[in-house]
Amino acid sequence: MAIQKTQVQHVAELAQLKLTSSELEKYTKQLSEIIDYDMGLLNKIETDGIEPTAQVTGLEDVTQNDNPRPSLDQKEALKNVPETEEGYFKTGVILEQ
């Protein structure tokens, strides 16, 4: 199963990475090899009659009661933030309109 350049480009955009054309070339080849290897392994496994799952713990219905506990205070919440303003996280401008 070969990966196409367009797919790598798409994934790069989702990850907000800018790739040069030689990088695109390189990663397409590498990703194809990785996927081929992994899928090759997976395809050898008998999975008939096995339901797909994203869980390995076998747990179900895990919830907590609706009882609030103390939060971090504002100072603590902002401790590792590069830029703040009046108690807010500060980021570059985002225009909605």
Partner: peptide, 17 residues
């Protein structure tokens, strides 16, 4: 389990990891 009563609260005063 951060409190959800955040109306008019100081910004970033009701958060956790």
């Amino acid at each position: 389990r951060c409190s959800a009563s955040v109306w008019k609260a100081q910004p970033n005063s009701h958060t956790c990891p």
